[in-house]
Design a protein around this nucleic acid. Structure first.
Lengths: 204, 204
DNA sequence: GTCTATAATTAGATAGAC
DNA sequence: GTCTATCTAATTATAGAC
């Protein structure tokens, strides 16, 4: 018998990396479906098939777990990047299509997790605000050259948040079960107008 | 001395009606600011200056308190009624102005309380869905005569939810601190277009 | 009606054996 | 790394005295 106890040969990853990953996956799932306040560490542990103590072993606190869960795999998904790099032309459709494509596949996305958590958790509220500012507002505003750039970007945020809440959280019909194409057709031009359209008059 | 104990003369409302009202007011305030899950019965009791047991005495359960809190004073506020009774002309502005006027004054409105609670509480999610269907979708759809009436009404719901979340819950700038007039100017036409505007093409 | 217990449950977190 | 056992604190809710 060779003394394998010390050698740490990777015949199969001894240890935690696997459990840690399973916990993380499960956490994303539950945080995405029930928000921070609606998810318990115990529930995550049970669903992941490990002991609650392991969760704390790996992530320290519930907040630590949440922070790890919302951390994006590769800082920014390539799809999101291409929304902004292709200029203003047709950006409305790209915003909506990218949003829906991402969220339809899994609700374990930072946007949904944070949107579900913010209303009852102050820390999540701050995180969501920062997330939106960094990932959306700043990039949109950078494309615009008008004095009301921030406000226009803000209007797009309203579309994004409204769509996320209506389709994935409150599940209001017929928004919840409309096809991606239908929503792109409807909301794409709306977003485009927020960014490049005219404003009526400025009311005194 | 006349035996006042039994007579119940209204020199000043003996008892509970006053406490009950204070509890209800406080509950609306806290539910509106922290949602169902983020609000404890004890917090409500303390803020209202009464004992936690009183809350249960009057409302039975926490859910009972919440139900009482979201119940509107006079079934439907007159302002909301007039949005729909004045026809489609200029309805976009009326929707936005009424929404903001109501929510700016106090967040103790059913819409905010429910929107804050729905993400982490399934029962609130259902209540919010029903509330929106009854108070907004149905009334809007009734005004429209097109085959896509429901979808158009849904688009307005997205505007309302997005605005509520961006301005009052996540507090995204510059939406959060924009003036009512500014937002009416910006979102009024957008809502109008959702309802009465043209749709590009129907994309196969 | 109002308050003082207090029961029953649950959640986040830690210590320590294996 | 993993689990058992446990601590602490907070919450909903009830029983009963005043």
């Amino acid at each position: 018998m060779t003394e394998e106890g010390t050698h740490r040969r990777p015949g199969r990853w001894r240890s935690g990396a696997e459990s840690k990953q399973r916990i993380l996956d499960t956490a994303r799932d539950l945080f995405g479906r029930h928000g921070y306040g609606g998810t318990t560490v115990r529930a995550v542990a049970t669903a992941a098939g490990v002991d609650p103590a392991m969760v704390f072993y790996f992530f320290g606190t519930k907040q630590g777990l949440f922070a790890a869960a919302i951390e994006m795999s590769a800082s920014t998904p390539p799809a999101i990047e291409s929304i902004f790099t292709d200029g203003l032309d047709g950006i409305g459709e790209r915003v909506i299509r990218t949003l829906l494509d991402n969220l339809d596949n899994s609700e374990r996305t930072p946007l949904v997790m944070l949107t579900r958590s913010a209303p009852t958790d102050n820390q999540s509220e701050t995180l969501l605000r920062e997330f939106i500012d960094r990932e959306i507002t700043d990039r949109l505003a950078a494309l615009l050259d008008t004095p009301d750039a921030a406000l226009r970007a803000g209007m797009v945020n309203v579309q994004i948040l409204g769509l996320a809440v209506a389709r994935y959280i409150v599940r209001i019909e017929p928004i919840a079960s409309a096809s991606v194409e239908e929503l792109v057709t409807r909301f794409g031009p709306l977003v485009q107008q927020c960014l490049t359209g005219q404003v009526g008059d400025h009311a005194r």
